[in-house]
Computed example of a mutant assay.
Amino acid sequence: MTYNIAILGASGYTGAELIRLIAGHSAMKIAALGANSKAGQSIAQVFPHLRHLDLPQLLQIEEIDFANIDLCFCALPHKTSQEVIAALPATLKIVDLSADFRLRDPAEYKKWYGNDHAAVAQQKEAVYGLTEFYRKEISAARLVAGTGCNAATGQFILRPLITAGVIDLDEIILDMKCAVSGAGRSLKENLLHAELSEGYHAYSIGGTHRHLGEFDQEFSALAGRPVRVQFTPHLIPANRGILATTYVKGDAQAIHATLVQAYADEPFIIVLPFGEAPSTRHIRGSNFCHIGVVGDRTEGRALVIGALDNLTKGSSGQALQNANLMLDIEETEGLMMAPLFP
C-alpha cells in the first residue's frame, strides 16, 4: 500500500530534508507540497538539488485538498503551525516539526514561547515524538509533536541514566555545539557568512533556551521530582550536526553499561566502545545518533558525548520514523541510509 503524504513548509530546510528522505521510501508518495512564500514555484526552482524528482508544484496551504491525504508533515515556523493545524481536518494524521505541541502544559508553553496557545484542544491530544521512548503512544496517535533537535540529543544521552539512577540529578551540565541550519532558512544578520564563519559563540545563555522546557518536562517526569539541567548551546560554523558534551557525577563504567543495555535493540542509537568519543562527521545526513562515554580524571565523574544530525535524527528523520509508526510501516523504512563522509 502507498500512502499519500503532504508536506507543509516544504521550502524550508526540514521540508527539503523530508522530501529527500521520502523520495527513497517504498510506501509513501508526496501528493502535495505547501509553501506559501514560494507558492507557484517548482521544487527545482527552490531546491535545485531535488530537481530530479517528480513532485507537485508548491501551493498555498489553503489550496491543498486534504481529502486524499493520509498523513501531513507540518514543517512550519513556531506559532504558525498551531493555527494551521487547528484548521486541518480532525481525522488527518499529523506530524508537527515545530515547537507548538511539545509542551503539555499551556502555561509552560506561554512561559517559554511568550504567547497563549491557539490550539489548546490539539495540544492536549498531541504525543511527544521522541520515538525510542514513546513508540506505543505514537503508534496510536493522530498528532505527534516532534522534539527540538537539542532536546532530542540531550534526552538520548540522559533518559536511560535518570531512569537507572546512576547519575546525580543535581549535577548535570549540557554543553552543546549546534550547526547553523538549526536556526532555519530565514535571512538573519547573525547567520550571514561574514558574521558566523571563523568562530563560534554561546547563545541563549543562563537558562533561557526554549528547549529547556522540554528537558524540564521530560526529566522531571522520569525522576518523579524536579530536575533542572544546566544547558548552554553554542552556534558553530557548520551546516549540519549537534555535538553534546554532558558532564555528570557517577561511575563511568556503570553509565556506559546502562546506555549499552538501554539501546541494545535500537536501530538508530549506537553506543560506542567505552572511552571512544563520537563526531558529527560520522552521522552527517543520517538518522543515527552516536553516544560515547569517557571517564573523567576526577573519580566518580564522567563525560557522556552524543552526536546527531539536527536536520535528520533531530527533526525530519525523527518525523519520518514517527510517521512510519503511525501508518503501521516498518519503523526503519526510508531511514537506513549511511552517513555522508567525508
Rank of each mutant, 00 (worst) to 15 (best):
G199H: 07
N287I: 03
T208H: 07
T153M: 12
K249Y: 05
L130W: 05
E276T: 14
F66H: 07
A307K: 02
L21C: 01
A221R: 15
I43Y: 00
P160C: 11
H282G: 02
Q230I: 15
Y109E: 11
H78P: 02
Q60M: 11
P226C: 13
Q261C: 05
A27C: 03
T246Y: 02
Y113P: 11
E137F: 07
P56M: 09
L327T: 00
A277S: 14
A39I: 07
E198A: 10
D175C: 11
G129H: 01
S220D: 14
H52V: 04
E83H: 10
G184T: 11
A39F: 05
D309H: 06
F66Q: 03
A35Q: 02
G292K: 02
R142Y: 06
Q321N: 14
E195V: 05
A194E: 13
M326I: 01
K79H: 15
D170H: 13
I157R: 05
A252F: 05
A23F: 00
N115Y: 12
L130R: 03
Y128E: 03
F73W: 07
A262N: 08
E195D: 12
T298H: 08
P48A: 11
A194Y: 07
N310K: 03
V127L: 05
F288P: 00
G165A: 13
C74L: 12
N4R: 10
E137Q: 15
K188F: 05
D265T: 13
H25S: 01
N310R: 03
N4P: 03
E333A: 14
A238P: 04
G306C: 02
N150L: 14
L311A: 10
R301G: 04
A254R: 14
S220L: 15
F288N: 02
A23T: 00
P233E: 07
R225V: 12
A151L: 06
S42I: 07
L174Y: 11
L187I: 09
L222E: 13
E214A: 04
G300R: 08
E266W: 05
K313R: 15
L235M: 15
G285T: 08
A164N: 10
R225H: 15
A164H: 08
F66W: 12
E83N: 11
P89A: 05
H256S: 05
S197M: 15
D296H: 14
E171Q: 12
A27K: 00
G241A: 11
I61M: 07
A254Q: 14
I19D: 00
E330Y: 02
I173Q: 11
A10Y: 01
F66A: 06
L130H: 08
G24M: 03
A86W: 01
P48L: 12
G285R: 07
Q57G: 10
K313H: 11
D70Y: 00
C72P: 02
G34H: 03
H49K: 10
I236G: 06
T147P: 12
T153V: 08
L243P: 02
K110F: 06
G9S: 10
A126W: 04
A31N: 01
A67K: 13
D54I: 06
A323W: 00
L212M: 15
E198Y: 12
I242G: 02
K136Q: 14
Y128I: 04
K93Q: 06
R104L: 09
L192R: 13
A87T: 09
Y200Q: 09
I5P: 00
L18Q: 02
G250D: 10
